[in-house]
Design a protein around this nucleic acid. Structure first.
Length: 661
RNA sequence: GCCUACGUAGCUCAGUCGGUAGAGCACUUCCUUGGUAAGGAAGAGGUCACCGGUUCGAUUCCGGUCGUAGGCUCCA
């Protein structure tokens, strides 16, 4: 990069610029510009002639657009601070993103947390000084010359890309203070508009997201229009941290991870009770909705995956076992072996739609760096099902699946959104079939009254799909459910059915999962409920607290009654005071606490305390049991969900003011 | 897999500028028999992730491995 151009140093007096910071030394603000900083003055000379002028503020912007502009400008401000600290830095790209912004840099050394503080400090300082954002429209050649002189090779690449895709005559540059960037804009009028921001973290990021390109250093930050918004957002981050499902899993003794099996959850008795409650619901739902469950092997000769195409397209993600001369694969998905079931005999149109579910144990060799608690594991179980249908049945069957989605998610107070992904450029089958299928999916969505977004060309090569994203009570989105049409695998497996006219027809396969994986869904639910699960899922649904051992016999008698009704209950007969036991039960978020002493033993009652309501008056044991049993049976969502304010830019409109940049 | 950071008792964390470690909670025993979020005392518990290197001596410094976190990439 020939001398390490400080490409941004365009116009300001040179005395303001810092010298390169020595490796691993704490930042100091008293550095002066090195006298030999040739690239700097060269750049300054170059930009001096450029037509920097006004930066018109767009009219009629939405709040989202305003925030986007604000955040993008903050990214530029940050880049300026980074270039000050690291004059040899190369800057890559720095867009606004949801809730904030980032900027990628190629730096001489890794960033430390102290660097982040120093960068933020400089940003605040420059913001206060109020440098205007100015815009210049220059020819592509002028821009290229500028960034070449400054040694900014990534910017050259961006220019090349723009030229290749858009063939413009001119590009625009934006400048604030000492920093000039290739940028389409728009920006705020002045850095003095940038007040409520915070740098959050650094990370590595491949240039252009390409693992073969250099790893850059990315700094993430957040920016808002008001201090109140910023505080609320930082509070949200804190709350999300508190609700982290790994932390809750530890505190509530639900699951563990061990390095002996990276990426695979070890469920404790308490945690497994929760998983089983969910699986029980899944099986009941399947029964009710006409699904039949099968149970297939976990280990297959590679032939199966050669047939399905996974061996060529998915091999890197599969665990493969060599046994003597044979290659076996741990199954990464249920579809291929479900298809073996389908083709195991001749099928009639009378059997369709054939709804086959299988919650097999799946293994995927996810990248080590991608593993993340229950959200990304290597071993998991999906609430998977494959529905074999005729073309005519697609629309009604999809509608049925969407109705299951509605039922499931409403059970947990989760809202959700749909995305319809249509035919990609490279697709299998004929376009007519696709068109019909897409119309069917649309019709099912419309008929159900669902709103959805369309991702044109976002479908899988084998068929269009509907993805469902959950919104939890912190407003976070999670991809769990998916409904996919598949025209390809029926061909690979030569599936058929005999139609009413005695011809052999090809079925269409619908892949569907609602919870997605039980693991991820558990993680989402834990964070959504902050670990206070509804009674029907709770590991221990009722705990009986004898006041002293004089009441122990009665406590166990009550326990027997609870258990007789299928309630997960325990007696805490440890030699502790009741206050202690209650505290522990509260911290475990136990929905029902039945306090019993001599008085209750005499009356056949219990003093009830619930997690939701606190202490209640004494009640007949039968009545309490009936209440708990009813909540379990009906799967009542007896959870106190306090939705945090949304950070969706469109929803959370501020008190209208002249927020004008 | 890549970047950065981290790994001390079951959990949450102190600490050691290189001389083999400490707290709280949990656990065990004893005392206490107690009305709605921690009663008291004693005890036990650690190859300071693992493997190498430097050193008289490494938990501490260096290198590697494994695992974890946040990202990148990928995805349920």
């Amino acid at each position: 990069m020939q001398g390490g151009g400080h490409y941004a140093a365009a116009t300001a007096p040179q005395g303001r610029l810092p010298s390169p910071t020595p490796r691993r030394e704490p930042m100091s603000e008293s550095h002066d510009l090195p006298q030999d900083a040739a690239p700097v003055s060269a750049t300054a000379a170059l930009t001096a002639d450029l037509p920097f002028g006004s930066n018109p503020v767009p009219e009629g912007e939405t709040r989202a657009q305003r925030l986007h502009r604000l955040r993008h400008s903050t990214a530029h401000l940050m880049a300026e601070a980074v270039v000050q600290l690291f004059p040899t830095a190369k800057v890559a790209t720095g867009p606004a993103i949801e809730h904030g912004f980032y900027y990628d840099f190629d730096l001489p050394r890794p960033l430390t947390p102290e660097d982040l503080l120093e960068i933020e400090r400089r940003m605040k300082k420059m913001a206060k000084r109020g440098f205007p954002f100015q815009k210049a429209t220059v020819s592509v050649d002028q821009a290229r010359e500028l960034f070449e002189t400054a040694g900014q090779s990534y910017k050259i690449e961006v220019i090349d890309k723009i030229v290749e895709t858009q063939q413009p005559e001119n590009v625009t540059l934006y400048r604030q203070g000492d920093f000039v960037d290739l940028c389409a804009g728009p920006h705020v009028s002045s850095t003095s508009r940038l007040k409520q921001f915070k740098l959050l973290r650094t990370s590595g990021a491949y240039w252009r997201g390409d693992a073969t390109r250099p790893m850059l250093q990315r700094i993430y930050g957040t920016a808002w229009e008001t201090q109140e918004d910023l505080d609320a957002y930082l509070n949200f981050l804190e709350e999300a941290k508190k609700r982290n499902h790994k932390k809750l899993g530890e505190e509530l003794d639900l699951f563990h991870f061990h390095k002996e099996a990276p990426g695979a959850a070890f469920w404790t008795p308490r945690g497994f009770a929760v998983v089983q409650s969910l699986q029980k619901y899944w099986r009941e739902l399947g029964d009710r909705r006409g699904y039949q469950e099968i149970w297939n092997p976990m280990l297959y000769k590679k032939d199966l995956y050669i047939k399905s195409g996974h061996y060529t397209h998915y091999k890197d993600d599969m665990f493969i076992i060599h046994q003597e001369d044979t290659e076996y694969c741990l199954k990464p998905m249920n579809c291929p072996d479900t298809f073996l079931y389908y083709t195991s005999k001749r099928r009639s149109f009378r059997e369709l739609p054939l709804r086959i579910s299988e919650g097999g144990i799946l293994h995927r060799n996810e990248l080590a760096g991608a593993l993340n608690g229950l959200f990304r594991v290597r071993q998991f179980m999906q609430d998977d099902a494959h529905i074999f249908v005729t073309a005519e049945q697609v629309a009604s069957e999809i509608a049925e699946v969407l109705d299951i989605v509605r039922e499931c998610y409403s059970l947990f107070g989760l809202s959700y959104g749909f995305t319809l992904s249509t035919r990609p450029e490279k697709f299998m089958g004929d376009a007519l079939t696709w068109d019909k299928a897409e119309l069917d999916l649309k019709a099912a969505l419309d008929k159900g009254g669902y709103t959805y977004t369309v991702d044109e060309g976002g479908g899988a090569f084998y068929g269009p799909k509907i993805d469902i994203k959950i919104n939890d009570c912190l407003g976070r989105k999670w991809q769990c459910a998916t409904v996919q049409l598949d025209f390809q695998q029926p061909i690979n497996f030569d599936m058929g059915y005999t139609a009413s006219d005695n011809t052999r027809q090809r079925p269409i396969v619908i892949h569907r999962a609602v919870f997605g994986t039980f693991e991820r869904f558990m993680g989402v639910l834990l964070e959504h409920t902050a670990g206070a699960l509804p009674t029907w899922m709770s590991p221990v649904q009722a705990i009986i607290v004898p006041i002293s051992d004089k009441a122990t016999d009665y406590a166990f008698a009550v326990l027997a009654q609870l258990k007789a009704q299928g309630i997960r209950a325990e007696v805490d007969d440890r030699n502790e005071k009741m206050g202690y036991k209650i505290r522990e039960a509260e911290m475990r978020k136990t929905p029902y606490m039945l306090v019993v002493g001599e008085k209750e033993a005499e009356n056949g009652t219990a003093s009830v305390r619930t997690y939701l309501e606190g202490a209640r008056p004494e009640a007949k044991v039968e009545d309490v049991i009936a209440e708990i049993a009813m909540r379990i049976k009906e799967r009542t969502f007896d959870v106190d969900i306090k939705p945090l304010r949304s950070f969706d830019a469109e929803e959370a409109a501020p008190a209208e003011s002249d927020l004008e940049y």
